[in-house]
């Protein structure tokens, strides 16, 4: 890589309107992981949405896919400064999963196999903004990338797209998840560079 003075053009190195501030384009898919990689087979995989009534809404793998798998092409922005454009995913919209969930709570804690957590406002998971992703780049998700299924919330930094998703718990207040407890922003909008506290 060479760094060349760009004279008076004033152009940023990555002068692309689809690139949020402080981000750099990549074409590969870096693996970030805060711990050992859980190995969860689709036969044992299960997703639960827990609401304040104590009722659990559960889906096994086949029941999840039966809700309808969509193609999704989105840009991914990681808080470690990389961005991938036009990434092809397949997954089930969270609108389908929340169809029969009655809750007065506005916030959600996502729980993963392996113990990871991250917090999100419910409204950021609805209206076509979030999915349970099962495939990326035309392949089933590798365990290293969160397979068999991960949360996909592309309008927020990628740490919100919890790998190895296993549950969503409704919360009355916005409580911090793993990285949010340890220095990262509660919300994580890449266009506002909401990286840290």
């Amino acid at each position: 890589m060479s760094f060349v003075t760009r004279g008076f053009s004033g152009r940023r190195r990555d002068d692309n309107p689809r690139l949020p501030p402080g981000q750099t384009l990549v074409n590969d898919w870096p693996v970030l992981s805060a711990g050992p990689t859980p190995r969860v087979g689709t036969a044992e995989w299960e997703l639960t949405i827990s609401d304040e009534t104590g009722a659990d809404h559960r889906w096994n793998w086949d029941q999840l896919l039966a809700l309808g798998v969509e193609d999704v092409t989105v840009d991914i922005h990681c808080v470690t400064h990389w961005t991938r454009l036009d990434m092809a995913w397949r997954g089930v919209s969270l609108d389908r999963l929340f169809e029969n969930v009655e809750s007065g709570h506005d916030f959600v804690m996502a729980h993963s196999y392996g113990g990871y957590t991250t917090n999100l406002p419910l409204e950021d998971l609805l209206d076509g903004k979030a999915w349970i992703a099962t495939e990326a780049d035309g392949e089933p998700l590798d365990p290293e990338h969160g397979g068999p299924a991960r949360l996909l919330v592309p309008h927020l930094y990628f740490w919100k797209s919890a790998k190895w998703i296993r549950g969503l718990t409704m919360m009355p207040d916005d409580e911090p998840g793993f990285w949010e407890q340890n220095g990262y922003h509660f919300y994580g909008d890449p266009w506002k560079e909401e990286r840290y506290w």
Binding site: P30, V31, L32, S33, A34, G35, P36, C78, V79, T80, G115, W159, F178, W179, N182, G183, Y184, R195, Y196
Partner: peptide, 25 residues
């Protein structure tokens, strides 16, 4: 675990997260 948005230090006995260090400018 260094390949994360911060350093994550885990217990060798039980994997519990002992500490995290996040470099933020």
């Amino acid at each position: 675990y260094p390949d994360a948005p911060g350093l994550v230090v885990r217990c060798a006995s039980c994997d519990h997260v002992l500490a995290t260090i996040v470099e933020a400018g």
